[in-house]
Amino acid sequence: MSSRDKILNSINKHLVPSVPLPDMNQDWIQFDNPTEQFLTMLSAVGGRGEVVPDLATVSAKLHEEPFYNKAAQICSLVPGIEISGDKTIDLNAIDDPHQLAGIDFAIVPGEFAVAENGAIWVTDASVKHKALYFIAQHVVIVLKASELVHNMHEAYPRTGLGSDEFRQSPHFGVFISGPSKTADIEQSLVIGAHGARSLLVFLIED
């Protein structure tokens, strides 16, 4: 007998009383001002964020960032945020993600944000190397201010996971809440464990 059959038989031989699935329609948390809640949570998890009127402001704000100005390699996936020629990395021109090891700054679009925990959903649906999100020293996420949900119960339907469209082209997706961090040494919080040392979020007003 294969291990598969052995395991399934071992499960099926037990007559276990069935428990029904619970009702998921509950009074899940809502916020009077979800944008403010999102920014508060983002800051609590070590990120920074602000609401800006347009992409031009994002570009201007980026030039105020010391690490941005010092960056040798920048990769922007956000149309409208242009990087000067000698610094820019074209993700689509790279075949092997290991070549991204030197990226200092990644500027990427986010799909939507979650107020209750400061998380932002990003995917590799149209991104050649998801490694960019994790290997860049600093990450900037840009998304529309209106793309904001209150809680995770509203968030999951927005991910499209399990939809017919998703089944046609399944892909990777991740909720990112703040920069990479650890507290594994004596519970001291240190920002910048393996992934991004900083996370900056711009919410663009419609």
Binding site: Y156, T159, F175, K181
Partner: peptide, 28 residues
């Protein structure tokens, strides 16, 4: 996937007092 909403809300809050883990990665 809809039930992940429950567990991603509970896991990090219970574990370390964070609102969610920094990276909650969905592999498909």
């Amino acid at each position: 996937p809809e039930y992940l909403s429950l567990f991603t809300r509970l896991l990090a809050r219970s574990a370390t007092g964070q609102p969610i883990t920094t990276y909650t990665s969905h592999f498909h």
